[in-house]
Every structure is written in C-alpha cells, then in structure tokens.
Design a protein around this nucleic acid. Structure first.
Lengths: 247, 247
DNA sequence: CGTTCGCTTGATACCGCTCAAACTGCGTGG
DNA sequence: CCACGCAGTTTGAGCGGTATCAAGCGAACG
C-alpha cells in the first residue's frame, strides 16, 4: 500500500522502508462518502484523524442564518486534525465536496508513530506546519486581497498543493468546486465569483471548464495574486512546477 | 521562576514539579523590544521559538503597496511557532505592538521536552491546537462576519484569552491596540473601526478608553458576535469568566 | 420530460473605503 | 510653563466594490 498521504509526507522528508510499513499499518479501513454529505458533523466527539485518500472535502462553519464559511479545503493526502483527540467537541463540520474516500488513524497511533520514529515525527510536524501556513495565507487573502486577487491566489495555491501529490500537470489541475463553494472559501457571493472568473478569463490568465482549471499565464497570475510559493515549501525538495525564483 | 507560559500550559493540563523545573530551565535569557519594532523580521532564518512574557505582539504580512494584515495576535504566554526550526525562511514578520519581553526556546529543546515528558507533550499539543482554532475563527470572521460582528467577536476572544493567563478580570481587560491595529486585524480601515466602535459603545455593549476594554454586556456582545467560547477551551478546566452554558 | 442545480447576466442597494480636515492628548524642548 | 509636533481619534462627503434580488438558460438526471 502506497497511498497519497505517503506521497505527501515523502515530499517533506524521505521515509525509510520500515517507516513506510509502520505507516501503512496505521490506516484503518477506508470509507466512502457521497458528495454534499458530512464526514464529521459539527459537535461530534472526535476520536481519530481522517486522511483524505480521494476526492475533495472541506472544513466549514455554518451560521443559523445560512451564511457558510469554508475554513479549509482538504485535498487528497491531507490529514484532518491529527490532534482532534485532544478536543472534547469540535465546533465546525467536515463535509465532502465531491465523492470522497477517507481512511482514519487513531490519535493513539499517531502518537506512537511519532515516538517510534523521529523521521515520521518530523514528517507529521512539517505537514502540520504547512497546513498552518496555508491557513495564515487565507487570513491575509480574506483580510486584504480584492476579489480578483483572492481567486488568483487560491488557484495558485491549489495548483501547487495538487502538484505536490502528483495530481496536477505543469499548467492545469482539477477544480471540482462549484462557484458557490468558491464563494464560501473566499468570503464572497457566487454572483461575484462568476463575474470575477469572467474577468480572469478575459484577461487570458486562466481558462476554466468542465471542472478543470488551466493556468494560461502562471507568472501573470502569481503577480496579480502577490503569490509567494515559498510558504508551501516546508519541504527541502522541489515541488513547484514553475521552478524556483519565479515570483 | 513561574512565568506566564507555565500558567497557560497549566490551564491545559496539570504539570508535575519535575516538568515545571524542566520547562523553567528551557528558557533562554529574555530580551526586550520597543513598541513598533520587529522581533523577527520577514525572511529571517528561524532558529528558535519565541515566548511572549509581557506585552502584545503580532504576526503580520505587509504588501509593497502598504496594505498590512495582522495574521495573529500574540499575547503573554503565547508561543510563537514551536516548529519554526523546520522552515528555511519565514514569509511574514513578528512585530511588537507594545513594549514586549520575550524569551526563547530552541526547537531542539522543545523536541527534547516533548520526548522526555508525555504531559509536556500534551500541554504543547493543546496549546498548538488552541492556536489553530483561533486562526480558524479568524478565517470565519474575515470571511462571513460584518464589521460589527468582527469587532465584537475579537473582544470576546481577547477577553477570554487574557483571562486564561490571569490578565483580565470578570468584565474588563487591557486593550493596548490602536484603531489602525484593530483595522489590520479585522481587514477593515481605521476610519470604519472608529465608527463601529462608536456603535458598540452607543448600544451599551462596551466602553473603551485609556487602553482598557470594559465589557458592559457580555451576553449581548457574544450573541451579536455569534461567539462560541468552547473553541478556546481545549482545556478540561474552566477558564471562561462567564462560566459554562452562557452562549 | 419535468425538475433541479449550477451558471450567467442585469438592475439596484449598501457596506465599507477613500480623501480630507479638525480635534485631542501627550511628550519634548525652548 | 508654554509652544510645538506628532500620533491617534473623530467626523464629514462622496465613491466604489461587492451584495442583493431577480430572471433566464443549459445540462444533468430521475
């Protein structure tokens, strides 16, 4: 078994065969969820971390008046809360945006893995750090970037994250989100997302059709977004399809 | 030596005397920084984690065109990036908002502490988790809360965080931020912060003068902000000055 | 084939921004 | 002790980016 989480951790630090086996044995049987269903409902009693093996999910918070904010996007290889077991209750939900396959690892097991192997510990720590860095960039986007900049920045981020786990090619990647989903990620309305997308298309930076994003002008998109790819490169290795020194 | 970081960790989990001593010995000599100076400049080579002992600091990102977003507020007891040593370069700066005293702990030392004591490991993990939860709530605020709601929510958060380290009383706490700082936290302009503050004052929810915030109607403020205090209570213990079940 | 969901576009409203000016408090130096 | 400067606060007027409301359209699907 050599799944997408391993691919992601390998992008941070080289794992020994022994560590790979240990990690492979940690996975509980995988489960499938239909699109638009909750993987972890709000207020759930959290026991294990979830690992996305296939499909896109999100962490989100919904207000009683209908407002929804997507707090983070969970792509294949992402670990959802390696520390949840420390919480008595979580205040937001995890939902599937597409059909999703997840496996689980108990908090106990993660703790054991980290104790038994410094390499695995470092791998998990780097993955956690990358997650935090993404969340920080979202804070910057929501606080100070315009609608166009936010969209451009998100596209740069997603392309890079997907490339790191082998799910993107040099200039395109899947984008299975509706415009409403994008709106709830970026703190905008779907109507405005629609118009902003049209602008990005008209300026020739991207094309977007059939759930696939094509980045026509990566340099231009990054410049527009003030995108600095280094924040995702917690890894020592090279995972940026554009290469270094290109922003 | 019994500093504010210990007080914070103790609020998560009871530490043994041995752990307290181990932790006390981990601190490097403290340093002072003047208000409005950088503790860690952008692009710095990060080696050690910083611990705020006194004063307020922030993590922020500044654009070349002048826009600034404060990514997180660092209060006494907060650890600034226990994992920085994994990064080769950080893409944002840490700045002092008031005069600040910080100590440092090397990444090596933190790693050793966590290996030597499961209790300390759990304490550090809980502190990290609380930090992430705060960042997530900021994402929700910036994405989907109105200016008034954002301000109200921030005040609730700060009061609770300060109470956890003994720096707030039942209905008031220090607030040494300028209106421009608040604007850069909440993704607004200082002019609009000023008007929103006036509204909050006029509705009798708060008073604010001389760098001190008084919460006149905690229930009303929380309701307005959709504030759910549980997200900060990674602890098993009780640190909410309003008590449980009050939201 | 009807229904639903997502996309697109138009008209209008409003929240928060920009620019500008005056006011306040406070530290500093003459 | 006063004059000054400066940083922060307050208020006004007008603008603009994004929201709201509404309608039509196409494709997927039961």
């Amino acid at each position: 078994m050599h799944n997408v989480l391993m691919r992601k951790l390998e992008s941070f630090i080289r794992l020994s065969d022994a560590d790979e086996i240990r990690l492979a044995n940690a996975f509980r049987p995988s489960r499938r969820f239909a699109a638009r269903t909750d993987i972890v409902p709000e207020g759930d009693d959290p026991s294990a971390a979830h690992v996305i093996l296939d499909g896109w999910a999100c962490r989100y918070k919904q207000f009683t008046d209908g407002r929804r904010q997507i707090i983070s996007l969970l792509l294949p290889g992402d670990i959802c809360d390696p520390h949840v077991f420390l919480l008595s209750r979580i205040g937001h939900a995890i939902g599937a945006l597409t059909p999703v396959t997840v496996s689980r690892i108990t908090g106990e097991t993660i703790r054991d893995l980290k104790f038994s192997s410094p390499t695995l510990q470092e791998a998990f720590d780097r993955e956690a750090l990358a997650t935090v860095e993404i969340q920080r960039e979202w804070t910057v986007s929501l606080g100070r970037r315009s609608a166009t900049e936010r969209l451009a920045h998100l596209f740069c981020e997603l392309h890079l994250r997907l490339a790191a786990v082998g799910l993107a090619d040099a200039s395109s990647c899947p984008l299975p989100l509706t415009q409403t989903d994008l709106a709830d990620v970026l703190g905008l309305t779907s109507v405005h997302i629609n118009r902003t997308l049209r602008d990005l298309r008209n300026t020739g930076l991207i094309t977007l059709s059939g759930k696939r994003l094509v980045i026509e002008d990566a340099q231009g998109l990054r410049q527009l977004a003030h995108f600095d790819p280094t924040y995702l490169q917690v890894a020592s290795g090279e995972t940026d399809p554009l290469g270094p020194l290109h922003h």
